[in-house]
């Protein structure tokens, strides 16, 4: 039986991991396999891990404001490595005006502060590879 696999990663220097951990637990409790790679990951490490773990979705969490640099980089690397079908989502302190830009750059969804877990879970259930 297939299980939804999700990689939750913290790119960059930001150490605020409350959101990443809460989301990881929430997805686990919804029956998914969550690979958590910890803090201070480079986009290269994240993309490689996503491929080897064959995840459906990569969830990036960044509260430092570096999302415009770090998130699209992961998308690019996945495409370069022939894994453009792996979805990339983002969460953290992201100003409203950055959201359309991120989507244009290939981020499938942005979950800002206050997003209910249920919304995140639903997104994964709907969009994971069947």
């Amino acid at each position: 039986m297939k299980k939804i696999r999700v990689l939750i990663a913290k790119p960059g220097l930001d150490g605020h991991d409350r959101g990443a951990k809460v989301v990881a637990r929430g997805l686990r409790d919804a029956g998914m396999e969550v690979i958590y790679t910890g803090l201070h990951q480079t986009p290269e490490q994240i993309a490689e891990a996503a491929i080897q773990e064959d995840v459906d979705v990569v969830g990036l969490s960044c509260l430092s404001g570096a999302h415009m640099t770090l998130f699209p980089r992961v998308v690019e690397l996945l495409k370069e490595k022939g894994a453009g079908d792996i979805l990339v989502t983002g969460g953290g302190i992201v100003p409203e005006e950055d959201v359309p830009k991120l989507k244009e750059l290939g981020i499938a969804a942005v979950f800002g502060p206050g997003t209910p877990l249920k919304e995140i879970i639903d997104f994964h259930e709907k969009n994971a590879r069947k």
Binding site: G12, D14, A66, T69
Partner: peptide, 17 residues
């Protein structure tokens, strides 16, 4: 963040931050 981690602005770790 680079300052908090003891990196200069031009350090590769500081990219985007």
């Amino acid at each position: 963040f680079p300052t908090l981690y003891g990196y200069d602005t031009d350090d590769p770790h500081s990219e985007g931050e």
